[in-house]
């Protein structure tokens, strides 16, 4: 009975071993996340009954709300939002429900910092947007909004996500264009973006786009106000 698998004794120090059956019993109540889920957090969240959960979570939620209300005092004000989102992801494996309020907090976080120049190229902030886009009826509008606001402009993640969205929705030419724009602005990490682009190109070669697919322009054309359109070069006074 109590034979401890020797794995427990070696190597992967510091973490305890979760029994799969504790998770498997509830597998249909867990929405997979791309970055994975902590088995330990899952087991903890699933161990309480739905009635107990409600009692447990409201004081925890109040604490997060309090920290958010004081966030403007912080050097890194997004931090309590990220902690809050992480808590929801752990405590509510089902994802968005009226109990979890996930979309609500994603919305608050994205809108709170949309004009914060210091987060424009912060991958943590962009990831919140990307999670929010998953729950949107019109993800494309979110991508174009971000482009207009130059949020994530220098991050590969933006171009990868947007291109993937376009690709699975059969806008391969536009996806191609998005990758190229990302590479042309040297989005980082550039190597990863190039690799994704080459994977995409491979798929494209095997499965070329239909002739009647929509094509450009895919990102809003930025028209700086009063840009010179013609006539003598800039600084010359009129």
């Amino acid at each position: 009975m109590s034979i401890i698998p020797s794995a427990q004794l070696e190597g992967q120090v510091g973490s305890s071993i979760v029994q799969f059956s504790d998770i498997e019993d509830y597998k249909e109540n867990i929405q997979p996340l791309r970055e994975g889920r902590s088995a330990q957090s899952l087991a903890n969240a699933l161990a309480v009954t739905p009635l107990q959960a409600k009692d447990l979570r409201s004081p925890e939620r109040q604490e997060f709300e309090k920290r958010i209300s004081e966030a403007s005092e912080l050097d890194d004000p997004i931090e309590p939002y990220l902690e809050y989102i992480k808590w929801i992801n752990n405590a509510f494996p089902q994802g968005q429900t009226s109990d979890s309020g996930l979309v609500n907090i994603l919305e608050r976080c994205t809108s709170q910092f949309r004009d914060a120049s210091f987060y424009k190229d912060d991958p943590r902030y962009l990831k919140v947007w990307m999670q929010y886009a998953k729950y949107s009826d019109a993800p494309k509008e979110i991508f174009t909004y971000l482009a207009r606001k130059e949020i994530g402009k220098n991050l590969s993640l933006f171009y990868e996500e947007y291109a993937s969205y376009l690709e699975v929705n059969n806008c391969k030419n536009q996806a191609n264009e998005v990758y190229q724009i990302g590479i042309s602005v040297n989005a980082r990490p550039l190597e990863r973006l190039k690799r994704r682009y080459s994977e995409f190109s491979e798929r494209l070669a095997r499965n070329p786009p239909d002739a009647n697919e929509p094509s450009s322009p895919v990102l809003p054309i930025i028209r700086p106000a009063l840009a010179l359109k013609g006539g003598p070069l800039s600084a010359d006074p009129i």
Binding site: K134, S164, Y165, V168, N169, E199, R203, R206
Partner: peptide, 14 residues
Amino acid sequence: KPVDLRSQYNRPLR
């Protein structure tokens, strides 16, 4: 085989 996008992104082909 090329990387299958659907295994990487939740959004399925619709």
